[in-house]
């Protein structure tokens, strides 16, 4: 079986010379849920941009469901990678929730009743079916984040990539989103510096710092390694201890 995601010695420098990624390697199997941890400026978002070819590097290799991410098959790649951006206002650019969820599937040639089904299916998965005809600005932030997830679920991606999914969410929305993510039958690659959230959702984690993967393993073990945490500017919120967080469901 092919891996959902394969990155081999990927390096990338911005035009101004700043090196953002330095020989990154990671493999994610189908059905896995993996967190990518790292402090601000570690290169997390840059890595995410490589997953669907918004950024392309000639140094290294990115494969999604066995397909090479390169200029001439971006369409195939984007069909398979569902990218959820940090700010749902960037992701939700249409005037109603329904149009927005339909945007992706319509671009890959789905129309008519099949398109309606896709939209309903995706909204159902994030429990937003009652909001289909609302304009996005009438939704709460947490609801918008969930619709943002639906916009890519509607494309039935092979891998769901989330950039800081818990940012700006109140505790209830945060829990609701976690429940939704855990209920999905899809490979998840989640970029975050919210460690409890990573632990709750992803059994496996990798740490990116200074453009390099410095650790890859069980999330609980990584978070338990104090030295590793400190040297990568990662820490649990004040007063929280690993033992407070229940083992994975």
């Amino acid at each position: 079986m092919t891996n959902a995601l394969e990155i081999k010695s990927l390096s990338f420098s911005y035009p101004d010379g700043r090196q953002a990624l330095n020989s990154v390697n990671i493999e994610i199997k189908r059905g896995e849920r993996v967190a990518l941890l790292g402090p601000n400026g570690a290169g997390k978002t840059t890595l995410v941009m490589h997953l669907n070819g918004i950024l392309l590097s000639d140094d290294g290799e990115v494969k999604v469901a066995g397909i090479n991410v390169e200029k001439n098959n971006l369409f195939e790649v984007r069909k398979r990678v569902g990218l959820v951006f940090q700010d749902p206002d960037d992701q939700l650019f249409m005037t109603t929730v329904r149009d927005d969820v339909a945007f992706g599937p319509a671009n890959i040639g789905i129309s008519g009743s099949e398109l309606d089904e896709r939209v309903n299916f995706a909204l159902d998965q994030v429990k937003m079916q009652d909001f289909a005809d609302r304009p996005p600005h009438h939704l709460s932030f947490g609801q918008r984040r969930r619709v943002a997830v639906a916009t890519v679920l509607a494309m039935k991606p092979d891998i769901l990539v989330l950039d800081e999914p818990s940012s700006n969410l109140d505790p209830a929305s945060r829990r609701e989103l976690a429940e939704i993510l855990l209920s999905l039958d899809v490979t998840i690659f989640m970029v975050t510096h919210d460690l409890p959230y990573a632990l709750e959702i992803c059994p496996r984690a990798a740490i990116l710092n200074d453009g390099k993967i410095v650790a890859d393993g069980s999330t609980r073990e990584l978070l338990g390694d104090d030295e590793l945490m400190t040297s990568n500017r990662l820490e649990l919120p004040f007063g929280m201890h690993l033992d407070h967080i229940p083992h994975h469901r």
Binding site: M49, N52, I54, F75, R78, K79, V81, L83, F85, D90, Q91, F93, F103, G104, N107, I108, T151, V152, M155
Partner: peptide, 9 residues
């Protein structure tokens, strides 16, 4: 960018 990610043409 968000549009491109969902196959905007």
């Amino acid at each position: 960018m968000a549009m491109l990610s969902r196959g905007y043409t």
